[in-house]
Design a protein around this nucleic acid. Sequence first.
DNA 1: GTGAAAGCGCTAACAG
DNA 2: CTGTTAGCGCTTTCAC
Lengths: 345, 345
Amino acid sequence: MPNLTLEDIAKKAGVSRSTASRVVNDDPNVSDSVRRRVKQVILNTGYQPHAAARMLASHRSWMIGLVLPRTVSNFFTDPYFPRLTQGIAQACNQHNYTLGLFLLDTKEDEKRIFPRISRKGLLDGIILQTAEKGDLLIERLVKSDFPVVIAGRPFIPNGISYIDVDNVNAAHIAVSHLIQLGYKRIGTITGRMNRTYAIDRKEGYVKAITEQGWKVEEELIALGDFSEEAGYKAMKQLLLVKPDAVFAASDALAIGAIRAAREVGLHIPNDIAFVGFDDLPIASQSDINLTTVRQPIVQFGVQAVETLIDLIENGIKPARHIIMDTELVIRESCGASQKNINLRR
Amino acid sequence: MPNLTLEDIAKKAGVSRSTASRVVNDDPNVSDSVRRRVKQVILNTGYQPHAAARMLASHRSWMIGLVLPRTVSNFFTDPYFPRLTQGIAQACNQHNYTLGLFLLDTKEDEKRIFPRISRKGLLDGIILQTAEKGDLLIERLVKSDFPVVIAGRPFIPNGISYIDVDNVNAAHIAVSHLIQLGYKRIGTITGRMNRTYAIDRKEGYVKAITEQGWKVEEELIALGDFSEEAGYKAMKQLLLVKPDAVFAASDALAIGAIRAAREVGLHIPNDIAFVGFDDLPIASQSDINLTTVRQPIVQFGVQAVETLIDLIENGIKPARHIIMDTELVIRESCGASQKNINLRR
DNA sequence: GTGAAAGCGCTAACAG
DNA sequence: CTGTTAGCGCTTTCAC
């Protein structure tokens, strides 16, 4: 395939470069006969417009960036991020955008990221995973008037678009469910408190506990980092204080925790109950059967892209705030079915 | 920040645009004093060259694409791919390349991918995960003389650069290790046979078994797809024919398999031994302690990028073929330590 | 509905 | 070492 330019196509079709351009870009101001002729030439030659030239002339790159900060950057320990990425990639394909992936591994990366992503002509917009409190990147991005969507509510949500689920409420429902089932000593494994979603899910737990007039016991709260490994370790801690049920802030945490519980011979849900968060495919497997809060992760990614495209095309103001629904999926690990039998007796 | 151009910088520094360009691109042909002056202006103004303009003029995009075919596209079920992606992203940051991620979700995606990634001016090169037998993408890419590195040996390796580990040998070593420990009825959980690495690891297994003069029993070979869930299901099958050891073609498979074994009350390694492949972090956790073939996944990604950059800068011929080392990491799940004690007695 | 012409912001010979 | 001059391939007014 030779390096054809628009000029060549125009010549072969016997029209001007502008007209050829109009056909390529589906401009309505072209007569049908000419359009057909040009399209035929394009088809025959396999012509593809030069990406950089188009970017330069049109001031659009048709490319969006996904930025994942360092703290989530060994992003393979929690299946959430790959899944989110998948949703985002899918939506990009759909809308004909190219996805640029920026995984921040080191502190160095983090320091150099702003110039790289804000460089003019590279990205039309950015999806940024919620970062830590006091993160400068979001602030700088907001100031730069760049189209940005935050995945997960940021610490300072003023004037910036984001998309989230109602984590407080979802966690509250999950823990309340355990309470209704009669558990009295409910522990939780949280994510690290440098993320709003970790904070919010803990808040939902606390709310449900205090609503009962119970005291929140610090020893029943264990810290993880959303990975399976962390769930395992956190559960080792919790086992010392013998909870009868545990709300884990992610499925990965829950699965690690379940491993730890089983390792010491506990049976689920008879000896101890679990509720997770995410509803990953593994949650529904027969030996896990995890009751969990279903998050529409892929759909969340799609929504992020579509919101961003809206920002790109219609301006960033006013900021969009989108909250997606969750749903408590009741399986075996919470003991609901057995409890119901008990109650019936 | 206003939209500064090189011209503006040049004016402010009292030099020509070319000189400013030279400073930006670290061209040695600039006097120190001028260089300092221009650099100062750049620093003061926060100037960033326009990405598209640079791409167009230099015929380089400083962007590489990572293409993951549909069959690996729900790429969050096997931690291998996120990890590989991380290695690739890391190397891209290091070398100042932007990473374009192309996750192929649907058949549609797969059909439309070639024009998208081969569009001139978008990518300097492509890293492509090994695809299925008869995949047209690789062929078309080879024909197009585009710089491409395949991650994992492709089915038709002629004239194309790839990077791989010696899967046959690694699997052979792993299974031989089980044989030496005295296991007599060794099963395996393979990946789907549409991937060279799945085929190769099975071949290593077969080689080790037949080397002993043993017959390869089909019922001892279960098919998975490299996910934990598949490992669990495959193991359910294998349990029916009571193997005393199992070689799993990935750690994810092994962990799913271990869950299935434990579910029916088997103890590891006393009742049944396991060896995995990958050495993911979870393999070393205290209740898993998986003996496994360590693959340098992140380093593999880095190597892929560096090979690709070599191709971009020095031409694609001759094709590079790089085989990276693996290592058998012996932990508890194979029963080596206990066996040794037995032997010593 | 179509064409001519003017850039988009940069790199890269080439001349000095 | 530095400046001048052509483009890179496309989009986008602006006339007609």
